[in-house]
Every structure is written in C-alpha cells, then in structure tokens.
C-alpha cells in the first residue's frame, strides 16, 4: 500500500512536545477513506520513516469546525496529533505548512460511537491521559454535535476527565472549555501543580468517584498510558460499571497497519486489525496485566 500524499495545511503546537498537523490530500482522488473515531493512520515523514498516529479530528467526522482551520483545509482534511518521541514523530512534529507527508489508513477498530445515540443510552465517560485525548476528541465532538437540544445544550451526561503532567502539557484546552460550555462535565487534573494552576491535582482516578457517574448504562472510553488505563478501568469497575462497556485503546509496535507484519501482537490480538480499541472486560483485562506479552 503506497502512502497517499497529503499537504500540511497547518502545524499547531499543542505543548512543548505535541503538535497537531492538519493535512489535506494533494489530490482529492488520492485521499484515504474517512476514518472512524479511534482509528489511526500511518504517517510517513519521507526519508525518515512511518509511524502510527491517532486521528484527532477529521472534516468528515466532526459535526462542527472549531478553529483548526478545517474550513480552509477543505474536504478530506484530517488532523493528527503527534507526540515527539522518536525520529519519525519528531520529523512530523516539526513539519512545516506546505510540506508533504504520506498517509496510509485508516486502520483498526474504532470506539464505535458512530453506531448509536450513546448519550441517550446512559452516561458516557471519557478518560484521557496525556496525548490520550487525541483519539477521543473527535468522539466527544461527534457526540456533542449530534446530541444537543434546541438551546445547544447536551442531551445526556458526558463526562470528560483529562489528566496531564502539568498545565503546560494539557492538550486541547480550548476544546475542553468548549465541551464544558455545552454542558459536558469536564475535569482536568494534573500530576504536578505549577503557579497559576487552580484546577485539580491528582490522578485521573481521583476524579471518577466524585463525578456522580451512574454506572448502570454507562460507557467509558479510556486512552492513555497502559498503566493509567489499567487503574482507570479498575476504578470504573469499582464504581459498578460493566467491564465490557469500558473501552481502552491499546498500543503495540505498529508497522504495516494491515495485519501482515506481526509486530503489534498482544496474545490473541493483532492490534492493528483487532484494536487499537478493545473492550476491557474478559480476556483483555488479563492481557493488560500479563508481563511481556
């Protein structure tokens, strides 16, 4: 599968090591299929390599534009949010507007939020750690876009709990504020308080019990470092949630995205094919605890 050529329309620096690239296909007929929420693309920094990157927004995904330049980027444009952790992600993070990157995808299983009116069915709890908010932004946007009443307020309860190392590392602060304004129950918590920070300090799990979630029909979407997801899922289970309604986004070495290369195996799962989003209940609960699987 050859990468489709996309032009960097905008590079927005989210934090010191996280950037969001707005990409538009060089030619409309070359565009990759529109991703479902939670799917990922493989991005190529030409001459450096390829990496699996979350889609944080897509023009055909979200109900609304929120100032990421998607109107100007046009149809088929996609926003990827990238953390600079290696050679490829570094090259992507510093890609300047106008430069070309390769896109293959979309790959894997998403959250499944397109398939129902989730907010009508029960509480939706989004828990993100660090850059884990990236593959969740389009879900929240979509749920918020489809489930507002005449006055523009959310029908149903949407909890967004976001953790970050410190205030300067909080991504999508404007989105978080916008969701809160729509009526979502948003809590942002940091590990380390810095001068001027007036919000919560502590682990994301500390925000779960006081939030007032009705565990009965609730769904939870969790993305962050694997340890954070384990503790979060345990806290949600303790609250009384059905573990099969807690979804986590798992990460392993992704190279082909197509299930051919064998790198992203986690026990019975080929994560680029069967994940990255999987239900936490059952086998996955154990897989996430097993050493060196």
């Amino acid at each position: 599968m050859d990468p489709a050529l996309y032009r960097v329309v905008a590079n927005r620096r989210e934090t010191s090591d996280v950037s969001s690239l707005t990409l538009a296909p060089l030619k409309a007929e070359m565009a990759v299929a529109p991703p479902r929420h939670g799917q990922f693309n493989m991005l190529t920094a030409f001459g450096v390599g390829e990496a699996a990157i979350s889609v944080s927004r897509s023009s055909r995904l979200s109900g609304r534009d929120s100032g990421q330049g998607l109107h100007t980027a046009g149809a088929g444009s996609i926003v990827h949010t990238i953390r600079d952790v290696g050679a490829v992600t570094h090259a992507l993070c510093v890609a300047s507007a106008g430069s070309l990157v390769g896109v293959r995808g979309p790959f894997g299983q998403g959250w499944g939020a397109e398939d129902g009116d989730w907010l009508a069915e029960g509480d939706v709890v989004v828990v993100a750690g660090g850059i884990g908010l990236a593959p969740l932004r389009s879900v929240v946007d979509d749920l918020a876009g489809r489930s507002t009443d005449a006055s523009g307020r959310l029908r149903g309860r949407l909890f967004v709990i976001a953790g970050a190392r410190e205030q300067a590392q909080v991504i999508f602060a404007d989105d978080l504020a916008r969701w809160a304004a729509l009526g979502a129950i948003v809590s942002v918590t940091v590990d380390v308080s810095t001068p001027g920070w007036t919000g919560h300090v502590g682990l994301v799990t500390a925000q779960i019990a006081p939030a007032g979630i009705d565990p009965g029909g609730a769904r939870a979407l969790v993305c962050g470092p694997e340890i954070m997801m384990r503790f979060t899922a345990a806290a949600l289970e303790k609250l009384g949630m059905d573990p099969s309604r807690i979804f986590v986004s798992l990460e392993r070495n992704m190279q082909c995205g197509l299930g051919w290369c064998g790198h992203c195996q986690l026990g019975p799962l080929i994560l680029c094919r069967d994940g990255p989003i999987v239900a936490y209940g059952g086998a996955v609960t154990h897989l996430m605890r097993e050493r060196e699987r």
């Binding site: 030409f46 001459g47 190279q255 082909c256 051919w260 290369c261």
Partner: peptide, 10 residues
C-alpha cells in the same frame, strides 16, 4: 513465520 519489518531508507 510471517513477521516483517517495514523500514525506510534514504
């Protein structure tokens, strides 16, 4: 055994 690396070089 079908595992493969995908590598870019200049």
């Amino acid at each position: 055994c079908f595992c493969a690396d995908v590598r870019d070089t200049t």
